[in-house]
Amino acid sequence: MASAEFLKILVPILYAAVVADYAVAFFTRIRYAEESKRELLLITLVAHLVYLFLRYAAYGHVPITNLFEVMTILAFAIALAYLMIERMTRVTETGFFVLSVALVFQTISSVFIKCCAEVNPVLRSPLLGFHVTSALLGYSAISISAVYGFLYLMLYHDIRSTRFSAIYRRLPSLEVLESMSFRATILGFAFLSLAILVGFIWLPRAFESFSYADPKLLVTVSIWLLYGIGFSARTIGRWQGRRVVILALCGFAIVFLSMTVVNVFFSGFHNFY
């Protein structure tokens, strides 16, 4: 238990170091940063994994039973997804931006996470694991897509205004960023669909107080609809570039609201802490 507490502090520090390393590699040309960033990311991910296992061992449940446990898993999923994207596309310049999101989630989690909360027995169902895991994977893919969308807009602005900062020099082309953002969105949408599907099967059975008017449920379904509309617009309306990117960013903003505002200010059967 003591080692879990220690890692709780160490993991966000490691994330900060990784983000700093990627930032130095992006904005300067210090070779050491360029060479060390991948290894450091790998070390961080391993430490994070160990942290998650230790928590599981110490508290006897998969850490998905409250918001701050979910956030640390979200951070892990984002960093892992980023690592895979980096290996696949060989574009290593966007790490600073994506991993910053992971750092934010992990820091919030480490600060607020409680050591041993009561766990609702309902949350021990295996279907829950499936439901939450796919929702989290969906959310992390959506976060990553938003980061690429944001980078797209920055680069778009830089190119148009002929202001050639580090962004212009180091980022891949607009088309690449758009397709990275779009692919991440597709992935996010697929996982979200799965989460919703499993949710509709499992939730009414597990909760007596289940209601279709639950704020979180409504928000999630509207996000899902929004993305559905986005995809139709892209394929049927041949929407391209900036418009699609802005749509992706709006989607992320609403996801973020769903994760925070709805959880904090609205109550429903869907809250577990």
Partner: peptide, 21 residues
């Protein structure tokens, strides 16, 4: 060696920042 230092190269460089392939 960064940045285009002739007009025609500058144009090509901009193109490669907009288009992937």
């Amino acid at each position: 060696g960064e940045g285009a230092v002739s007009v025609s190269y500058a144009a090509v460089e901009l193109a490669s920042k907009i288009f992937a392939d």
